[in-house]
């Protein structure tokens, strides 16, 4: 199953909650979740370093002790914000990311990989696990263009151009009669 992030999810400030089991963690190792577009390896520290950053941090930094079972929270808006400017971005994005961000026009499901990484020290990491089932789809399809109305006997016939900018489930047409 795919975990979609829709415009309504963003407006509602939806959050993913991942219960995880951690083992073998020493006190100097923490857990962070980083997001990247499909094909980018967020376990590579170069992709998490400001100058060359391709991944962005989407969770708090968790400092588990041995045997601790945390629930890791990843706000959808933090994924959508795609904040590459600060490796430790902590601000909670507002609703403006729903309509004014890298992904606010996405219509076809941008695949996002969430990497759960054990972080030790400033710049190192070892391979964590990847959650690959998040997709972003904030925008609906465009309205059809080239709508034409033809006259038939006792009916009107509509024709229109196919819409290709999104996942189409159907078309609905409404008549807007003049006042009176």
């Amino acid at each position: 199953s795919i975990y979609w992030i829709s415009q309504a999810d963003c407006q509602a400030d939806d959050k993913f909650i991942f219960p995880v089991v951690l083992s073998g963690f020493s006190s100097d190792v923490s857990v962070e979740v980083w997001a990247g577009e499909s094909g980018v390896d967020c376990s590579n520290v170069d992709n998490r370093t400001t100058a060359t950053q391709k991944c962005w941090k989407v969770s708090a930094t968790y400092n588990p002790s041995q045997g601790f079972t945390p629930e890791i929270v990843v706000p959808a808006r933090t994924i959508l914000a795609r904040d590459l400017t600060n490796a430790a971005a902590s601000a909670t994005p507002g609703a403006d990311v729903c309509t004014n961000s890298t992904y606010s026009d996405s219509r076809n499901g941008v695949p996002i990989v969430l990497s759960f990484l054990p972080i030790q020290g400033v710049s190192s990491s070892i391979a964590g696990i990847a959650f690959t089932k998040v997709r972003i789809d904030l925008g609906g399809p465009d309205a059809p263009a080239k709508l034409e109305l033809g006259v038939g006997e006792n009916r009107l016939s509509l024709s229109w151009g196919q819409v290709t900018t999104g996942d189409i489930t159907g078309y609905q047409f409404f008549c807007d009669p003049p006042p009176g």
Partner: peptide, 15 residues
């Protein structure tokens, strides 16, 4: 070594 275990069926959403 550190291991992280995530069970997909346990993933929840806040809504």
């Amino acid at each position: 070594a550190q291991t992280i275990t995530l069970t997909e069926t346990s993933v929840r959403r806040s809504e």
